[in-house]
Amino acid sequence: MTPTRLYTALGALTVALFLASLTTGPASLPIPEALSALVTQSDGPATMVMREIRLPRALLAALIGASLGLSGAAMQGYLRNPLAEPGLIGVSATAALGAVIAIQTGLAAAYAFALPAAALSGAAIATLALLALAGPRGTALTLILAGVAFSALAAALTSLVLNLSPSPYAAAEIVFWMMGSVADRSMTHVALAAPFILAGMALILPLGRGLDALTLGEDAAASMGTRLHRMRLALVLGVAASVGAGTAVAGAIGFVGLVVPHLLRPLTGHRPSTLLIASALGGAALLLAADTATRLVFPERDLKLGVVTALIGAPFFFHLVWRLRGRL
């Protein structure tokens, strides 16, 4: 498949799933009425439901899905390791820790942007440490082990911070931060996260050519003019900004960055540059589909988004581990 046709197909799928997300929900609005309420002003609850509940939800799912797909593809290309994924290696968990600290210290209430900034810092620390521990020359095993340690530590510290807080909702909060959800978020959250997510993605997308060159090895890539240090800096900042901001408003959502590049790689002729754009579109589509599923499978229950992505993603992970077992 040519890249253009692949992008067109994935783009069309994303748009279709975006509309599906907008027209799914407990308030039974007929589809034409729902979509017209989105564009025309009226006093009824339909406009409220569409503009203040479903639109931010669909926007966040699309943005966060795109950033996770893109980050997964970029990290896998840079580390040449198919298991690199922000959720699995602890970047999301560390971002969640940053966000929880910002909320519990009251910093997020005082300065709205302290929330994404703290999550971003957490994600940046984790990404830097992971690249240092398991850089391009590290093995898949080093990366996964370091990631497991980071995830466990961040999850434990998140639980600790919430346990020490006077909030009676600590247990529910822990579930949210570990499983993630975009339910009942508002446009405020979109405005808070979108600038960082888009900026992060803008840092990662131009890395395609360098990642293509890197498939030939570091020395070859360097001789072709790829500046590895700059690439690494852009990758760390891009992943931290996009994953950090997404996690700050929706919790840690795992496996998207693993599943999407894995599914799309054969369709891109194994070219990292094509995979980057395709994974961004595919990530948006997957998260929109997963979030729509949370509302269709158990409409009465508050099913968490991360549960659905884990149910989809874990089999892929096992499949990858099975294929890699000889090399690990």
């Binding site: 409220m48 909320i103 006077p166 909030s167 909702y169 600590a170 909060e173 949210f176 009942d184 405020t188």
Partner: peptide, 12 residues
Amino acid sequence: KSRAEEILAHPV
């Protein structure tokens, strides 16, 4: 003071 209570400030 917690994410759980944010919903009470939602525009809806």
